[in-house]
């Protein structure tokens, strides 16, 4: 689910951009360590274009319409490996945002985090890979894809809820919003998971080496999985912590609940030091450090709480509209003059 710019405050958008930029930077260094990185670039790019092409296929799913989320994070991560998949998804999201208005530009950080970092750098290495490390049978691939896709989408949807709430845009109570988002994305996740399983099953039976090399993280010398797991744990904890501390400043009551929920399912260490450290990092990386969540009463009603405010707004609106009409009229006239000359 692509978030639009309008659903975010500058502070949340900026923080998430910084977090996603860090994740991309980290992935780039990991990929560049790989000797074959240069050869992987065209395949990463093709996988990105493949996401767009797959959207063109109309699946006849009884009862539902489109299938816009076929190129999910888990599918790409399984085919390319986690770090390359994150870059691919980021490129796809940037193109979607620029050329299709699907998701905002400042919201890109959030979208990359929700749909890229969570599935590729958290769910894929911690759930999908371990499930297939011992043997890659068709059944194991199916179970791992469905489970990982559902879980990735659940976390992603939950992140959308957190980010929107932290931005202070919606009046929807936190729990109602979450209760609305999670079941919808459970259904989407199941369908996407089944398709992912089918696609991966097919690719595995045709070219088993593709998924195998992604799982082994080709050419990065063996014996580092534990370090990698710890590192991705740390990065995820910091990023989630930064987000939660933002959220905490807006809704002190919701924090305990959401922490219990997140920590209960992902086993992240979020208490004490990590959270405080994350808050410090958040303060340092936030776009507008002094921008915090004031209630509207504190800031004074922005519309002037008066009819005068409305009239002023209407005047400005008319003035802007007039300017637009004037410029297009002048342009048209110039063009006409040029054509006749």
């Amino acid at each position: 689910m692509h978030m639009a710019d309008a659903l975010l405050s500058a502070a949340v958008g900026g923080t998430m951009c910084a977090a996603s930029a860090a994740a991309i930077g980290y992935s780039v260094t990991r990929i560049q360590k790989d000797e074959l990185s240069e050869k992987k670039v065209p395949i990463m790019a093709v996988a990105g274009a493949f996401v767009f092409a797959a959207q063109m296929i109309n699946f006849t799913i009884p009862g539902t319409g489109s299938s816009g989320h076929i190129g999910g994070g888990i599918l790409l991560a399984a085919l390319l490996g986690g770090y390359p998949a994150l870059l691919t998804i980021s490129a796809v999201l940037l193109i979607q945002c620029l050329f299709f208005a699907d998701g905002g530009l400042l919201a890109l950080g959030c979208n990359i985090f929700n749909m890229g970092v969570i599935p590729c750098l958290v769910v894929y290495p911690l759930l999908f890979k371990p499930m297939l490390r011992r043997k890659t049978s068709l059944a194991a691939i199916g179970a791992a894809s469905v489970l990982a896709t559902v879980l990735g989408l659940q976390f992603g949807a939950f992140a959308v809820v957190l980010e929107t709430q932290a931005s202070g845009i919606t009046e929807l109570p936190f729990s109602a919003f979450a209760l609305l988002m999670q079941p919808i994305h459970l259904a989407i996740g199941l369908v996407e998971g089944l398709i992912t399983a089918a696609v991966l099953g097919f690719v595995h039976s045709m070219r088993p080496e593709i998924m195998q090399s992604a799982i082994e993280g080709s050419a990065i010398g063996g014996g580092v999985p534990l370090r990698r797991v710890l590192l991705s744990f740390g990065a995820a904890a910091l990023i989630v912590g930064a987000l939660l501390s933002l959220f905490a400043s807006a809704y002190p009551d919701g924090l305990e609940w959401s922490m219990e929920r997140l920590a209960g399912t992902t086993e992240l260490e979020l208490k004490g030091g990590v959270l405080e450290g994350a808050a410090g990092i958040q303060g340092a990386t936030a776009f507008m450090p002094d921008y915090d969540f004031k209630s509207p009463e504190e800031e004074g009603s922005p519309l002037g709480t008066s009819t005068a405010g409305v009239v002023g707004g209407a005047l400005t609106f008319a003035l802007a509209g007039g300017t637009a009409l004037l410029i297009s009229a002048v342009k048209k006239k110039n063009r006409g003059a040029k054509a006749t000359a």
Binding site: A10, L106, G168, M288, P296, L303, G304, G309, A320
Partner: peptide, 23 residues
């Protein structure tokens, strides 16, 4: 983008002048 999104959620009157940018 940053400026537009830095207003709080009720700031309708303050957002209207920004229409000049696209206009």
């Amino acid at each position: 983008l940053v400026t537009v999104l830095s207003f709080d959620q009720f700031a309708l009157g303050r957002l209207i002048p920004f229409i000049f940018y696209p206009a």
